[in-house]
Every structure is written in C-alpha cells, then in structure tokens.
Amino acid sequence: MSIHDLLKQYIEEGRIKLDKSIHHELTTYHDPCNYGRKGERAFGHGYYEEPRWVTQQCCENYVEMYPNRANNFCCGAGGGAWAAPYVEERIFYGRVKAKQIKDTGAKLLIAPCHNCRDQIMKSLRKEYDFMDVEVKYLWELVADSLVMEPREEAEEE
C-alpha cells in the first residue's frame, strides 16, 4: 500500500484531524520521479493527485511548480546520486529544480521522498540561495498539522 493512499484514507475517514491554520504560508509540492512517472510506467498509476490533495488538507495557500506531474523535473539526487561521489554534477543538475521552486514564491515545499527532501533541503537551498523556503516530508506536514485528541480510556481499563 502506498503512503499516499494511507494518509488520504485516514483523512477521508476522519481517523486523523488536521489544523489548516498551522501552515499558512504559500506551499508547493515536488513530484518525486518514483511516485510519479516511474510508478505510472511500472504499476500503471502515478501518484500525482493524492499527495496534492493531502497537502491541501494541511495548507490553504497552495501553488504549483511548472512544469509538474509527469513533466516535473527531478531534484537532481535520484537514482542513488545523493549517495554517489559526483557532487558537482548533482548540484548542477539541481539548478533546474531550484529555479522551479524559487519561481513559485512558495515558502514551504513538500516532498514525499527522502532523496528529494535531502537534496532540496540540505543542498539546493544553500547552493541556490533559498534558505527561506522550509522543506518538509509529506508525512511530516501531516504530523505537524495533527489535532491530537485524548484517547478514550475504555480499552485500557
């Protein structure tokens, strides 16, 4: 099961409650290659809409990068490049992603992939000067938006 389906299900079924007022800044979403294009090719379904929907359950102000979905640009660290020694090439690759992000004017970027998040948060922000943009995993955004309700004690008694 995909994390996107799971998060969507929790929200739709009311199993978790989210507070939209916590993340009020303009927010954008990065399509990881693996959940999008490659998922579409390998499994017949690209996860484009589900994570956008989840993001927008947490954030009121949302903006798209261009291009996006199946035509989105890779962060530059996929395919093992984050762990490979070609640092200069990886940063060069990421210039396109950095420009896409900066062009949106968003102050919060959501990435549901470890590689993409690390490349953008730990490398591109510094190299291309957009440290003012915060980067979160999709599940981090959801966890930070949670309204925790006290557990019913009945089952413990």
Partner: peptide
C-alpha cells in the same frame, strides 16, 4: 551515474 534515472526522457 550522473543521470538520476528520473525517466523524464523516457516519458517524452
């Protein structure tokens, strides 16, 4: 190896 196997080429 500097290619990230992102698949944008293949898609297009």
């Amino acid at each position: 190896w500097v290619c990230t196997l992102c698949g944008r080429c293949e898609y297009a």
